[in-house]
């Protein structure tokens, strides 16, 4: 059965004095997602509504936004399951706003690239599996879908614009776990910085909000442990040598 839901959508265009909210009525079905509703608004009510999306199944991470105050992937957020007659849709926090629901992701990706995280890895091939012609080896993506939700929910990213951020630091820890030829000392030097792992205050919002179970906060803590261990080893190594 169709059910009309009110959407209050954040609106902002370059040059506007301030953002505002527009209200739309959308007919929803039991399986309608927030992304379905937003694309319907753009198709039938306001073509100027700007949003970013691609895969519609939680793989690409492009449709991350705030729905009723909580960061989610709009493509897998069921409108009816929200349980509210009115749905408030806003862009991610802690990123420059481009338009309506779209934020600038360039700073996020720049930090990711600085870490030089291996974005793809060799899969554990099933014995006897056939590869497509011309494909020398099978690759799959790491679990992070680079949606930016972890940075949006992070209270520290909200106050420190130079903070490396949960995603990049989790990536740094993945490099520590599996360097695969990457420049590990350089990556650790990026993380071992006042704006790196030491800035995190363990709110664990990133881990709770991550739609891909990356556990960024857990990685940050493991990275801290590794860095502290390295410092302690350096501290006591000369004494051990003296004792020999």
């Amino acid at each position: 059965m169709g059910e009309t839901v009110t959407f209050r959508v954040h609106r902002y265009k370059q040059g506007d004095a301030a953002p505002h909210q527009d209200t739309f009525q959308v007919e929803t079905e039991p399986r309608t997602t927030v992304l379905d509703a937003l694309t319907a608004i753009r198709r039938t009510q306001d073509p100027s509504l700007t949003l970013r999306h691609s895969c519609f199944h939680a793989s690409c991470g492009t449709c991350a936004m705030k729905v009723n105050g909580r960061e989610v992937l709009a493509c897998v957020t069921n409108v009816r399951e929200l349980g509210t007659a009115e749905v408030v849709v806003e862009p991610l926090e802690n990123a420059p706003l481009v338009s309506d629901l779209v934020v600038e992701m360039a700073p996020f990706f720049a930090r990711y690239n600085a870490i030089d995280r291996p974005l793809v890895r060799e899969s554990e091939l099933v014995p006897g599996a056939q590869r497509a012609p011309g494909v020398e080896r099978a690759l799959r993506y790491e679990d992070c879908i680079e949606c930016g939700i972890c940075v949006s929910v992070c209270p520290i990213a909200g106050t420190d614009p130079d903070y490396l951020g949960p995603a990049a630091l989790a990536a740094a820890d993945r490099v520590r776990e599996e360097p695969r030829g990457r420049d590990l000392p350089f990556v650790l030097s990026l993380a071992d910085d006042p704006h790196g792992v030491w800035r995190c205050h363990a709110a664990f919002e990133c881990t709770e909000a991550c739609p891909s179970n990356v556990d960024p906060a857990g990685h940050i803590m493991q990275l801290r442990r590794a860095l502290i261990g390295g410092r302690l080893r350096r501290l006591f190594a000369p004494r051990a040598e003296v004792g020999r």
Binding site: Y12, K66, N68, G69, E93, P155, T159, E205, E208, A217
Partner: peptide, 23 residues
Amino acid sequence: APPRGRRRGVLGWLDVRGRRLGG
């Protein structure tokens, strides 16, 4: 950078919407 940033700031720490246990 676009002219308008969306950074929560210190007051954003007091925004309880969507806050989880660790928050």
